[in-house]
Design a protein around this nucleic acid. Structure first.
Lengths: 323, 323
DNA sequence: TCACGGGCTGCAACCGGTTGCATGAAACAT
DNA sequence: ATGTTTCATGCAACCGGTTGCAGCCCGTGA
C-alpha cells in the first residue's frame, strides 16, 4: 500500500497534523522539522491522497472543461492551453465532449458538478436559462457566450465578421452568403447580427449548418443557388467542406466564389486554396478562462467579462469579384 | 450545502448504513425501505460524494487517458469512444496531453496515478522499461505498443504497411520512401520492420519526422532528392504536409509521386487529391481499451492482448508510376 | 415450545487527510 | 521575578461515505 500521512508522522517522530501542515501550510512549521518531514516523505514515496484532502477541504483541485466536439480542431489549442495553465497551479482539467448535444451537455455538467471545483463551458449550446440554473451548484466560466451573472470570455467574432465582409465588399462582392452554425450558438448569432447591420451588402443567410466539413459539403448547392459570390462561413470546417463541395460541382474558389472561414485551424493553411479566415485567440482564451475560474473558486472574486480581439488573415480563398 | 447521506437517513428514518446500502448494495435492503429512501434522496437532491466513496473503497471511478497530442485528429475518435464507453459504466476519463514529450508523459502518469484507478496509454513515447516501472503503481492498458506484462491493444500497422506497399508496387513503383514518425514510436518501428522485410522494393527510410503537417512539409525536399516515386508516411498529417510541400515545389501528386498515409483522418477525405491511406480502428480500440482496463481494475483479470485489423483505402493520391 | 436460520437493519470503526483549539516552551518586556 | 507574546506542536473532532459484525424479528421444522 501507498504511504499515508501517518506512516510519515511515525517515521519522523511528529504528529500527523505536523506532517499535514508541512504540505498545506509550510510557514506554520519549524524549518528543521519541515525538512526532516520532507526527507522522510520523499523516502517513503509519500503523496497526499487527493480524495481525502477533497473530503475535508471541499476542494477537489479538479476543473471541468466542456466542449461540443473534441474533433473540431478549434478546441484542442484551447484545451491544451487550459490544461497546461491549470497544471502549473496544481489543478487538473477534465475534458468532456457533448457531441453537440445540449441534452448530453446538461447531464455532463450535472455529473461533473460533484467532482470538480468549477466548470469551463466552451461555446455552450444550452440556453442561458439552463446555464443560469446549473450555475447555482458550481462556479462557471463561459467562453463564447454572454450569460449575465457569471464570468465570461468572448472572442469578438462580430468584429471579425465585419472585417471579413468589408474584405469581401472591398473585392467587389455585393451578394454575400452567411453560413450560420448550429442553432443555439451565440457565436453564430453574433455574426448574423454584425452582418445584418452592415450597409452595402446584399446578405443571404443559409443555415443552421452542422459545424463540420459535412455541413459545408451539404450546403454547397444552396450557396450556388443563392447567387452569392462571397461567402462567410461559421467556421473553417464548414468553409473547407464548402470549398470541396463547390469544387465537385465545378465551381472554382476564388475565381467564381470567394470563401472566408473563422477559427484559423491548421488545415486551413495547408489545403488549396489556402483559406482566408478570421483568427480566434483560442489559447489565450483557455488560459484566461482558467485564471478567472480559479479566482472565483478560491477568492470568490466578482464576475468578470473579457473580450478578446480577432483578426482577419487573408490567404488564397478570396479574390476579386467577377464582373 | 449539498445533502449528505446523513440528511437522507434522518429524513427517511433509517440509519446511514441503510442509505449507503441502498445505493451500493441494493439487494441487501428491503424493497419498501429502498423505495422510500430513494424517494427521499431524490427529493433532497442527494448525490453520493465521490471523494468520500473513493476514500473508503480505494476506487476513484476515474480513468486516465494519455495521448501525445489532442490536436492530432487521430486521437479524438479514440478519446470520444473511450469516454462514452466509460461513462456508460459510471467511470470518468481524464484526458491529458503530453505534447509529444516523454518527460511530460512520465510526470503526468505520476500525478494521475493517485487519482485514477487505471491509465490508458495511447501510442506512448516512453521506453518499455519506464512503462514497466510505472506500472507497479497503477494498472495500465497500452495502445499501440507492445509491453510485456500488461494488457495491450495493437492496431496491425505492419499489415497495413504491407498492403500499402503492395499497392504501390502494384502500380509499378519500385523506389519507395518510408517517412518514419517520432523516435520512440512503436508504430513507426513496426512499419519499418514490415517494409524492410518486403521483396521487390527499393526502400529508402527518411526520418524521424514530427507527426504533423509541419513534419511533412519539412521532409519534402528529401523525398524529392531520394528519387522515390512512391511514399508511405507515418501518418496522414505527414502525408498531407508532404503533398502540400511537393505542390509548392511543382511536383504533382499522384502524377509524379504517389503518397499513402496512415490513420484515415477526416481531412484526408476532403483535401485534393483525396488521400489514399491505411485506416485504423480507433474507436474500437478506445472501447476495447476501456473494457480491458476495467476488467483488470475490478476483476484483477489477467493481461490480454488484442490485435485489430487495419485496411487500405485507395483514393486519389496514388497512381501508376511514370515510365 | 424451542432451536435454528435467513433477511434486514443498526452500530461503530475506519479510510487519509485538515484545522480550531489547547498546551508548552522560549523570547521579550516590565 | 512575573506577565505577555510568539512560535511550534499535539490533540481530537470532523469530512461523507463503506462494511464487518452483531442483534432483532419472523418463519420454519422438529
Amino acid at each position: 500500500m501507498a504511504a499515508t500521512i501517518r506512516d510519515v508522522a511515525q517515521a519522523s517522530g511528529v504528529h500527523v497534523s505536523t506532517v499535514s501542515r508541512t504540505f498545506s501550510a509550510p510557514h506554520l512549521v519549524n524549518t528543521e522539522t519541515r525538512s526532516r518531514v520532507l526527507a522522510v516523505a520523499e523516502d517513503l514515496g509519500y503523496r497526499p491522497n487527493r480524495a481525502a484532502r477533497a473530503l475535508t477541504t471541499g476542494r477537489t483541485h479538479n476543473l471541468g472543461l466542456i466542449v461540443a466536439d473534441i474533433s473540431n480542431p478549434f478546441f484542442p489549442p484551447l484545451i491544451k492551453a487550459a490544461q497546461a495553465h491549470a497544471r502549473a497551479r496544481d489543478y487538473h482539467v477534465f475534458v468532456a465532449d457533448t457531441d453537440e448535444d445540449p441534452q448530453v451537455e446538461e447531464e455532463l455538467i450535472q455529473t461533473l458538478t460533484k467532482q470538480v471545483d468549477g466548470v469551463l463551458l466552451c461555446s455552450p449550446r444550452l440556453s442561458n436559462r439552463v446555464i443560469e440554473r446549473l450555475h447555482a451548484d458550481v462556479p462557471f466560466v463561459v467562453v463564447n457566450r454572454r450569460v449575465k451573472g457569471m464570468s465570461t470570455i468572448l472572442m469578438d467574432v462580430g468584429q471579425g465578421a465585419r472585417l471579413a465582409i468589408e474584405h469581401l465588399t472591398g473585392l467587389g462582392h455585393r451578394r454575400i452568403a452567411l453560413l450560420s452554425g448550429p442553432s443555439g450558438s451565440w457565436t453564430s448569432e453574433e455574426m448574423r447580427a454584425a452582418a445584418t447591420a452592415m450597409d452595402d451588402v446584399d446578405l443571404v443567410i443559409l443555415g443552421p449548418n452542422a459545424p463540420t466539413e459535412q455541413g459545408g459539403l451539404a450546403v454547397a448547392d444552396e450557396v450556388i443557388a443563392s447567387g452569392a459570390t462571397g461567402v462567410l462561413a461559421y467556421n473553417d470546417l464548414i468553409a473547407l467542406g464548402l470549398i470541396e463541395g463547390l469544387y465537385e460541382r465545378g465551381v472554382r474558389v476564388p475565381a467564381d466564389i470567394s470563401v472566408v472561414g473563422v477559427d484559423d485551424i491548421v488545415s486551413g493553411r495547408l489545403n488549396r486554396p489556402k483559406l482566408t479566415t478570421v483568427a480566434m485567440p483560442t489559447a489565450a482564451a483557455g488560459r484566461m478562462a482558467v485564471d478567472l475560474l480559479l479566482q472565483s473558486v478560491n477568492d470568490g472574486a466578482a464576475t468578470a467579462l473579457a473580450t478578446l480581439e480577432t483578426s482577419l488573415i487573408v490567404r488564397e480563398s478570396t479574390g476579386e469579384a467577377r464582373r
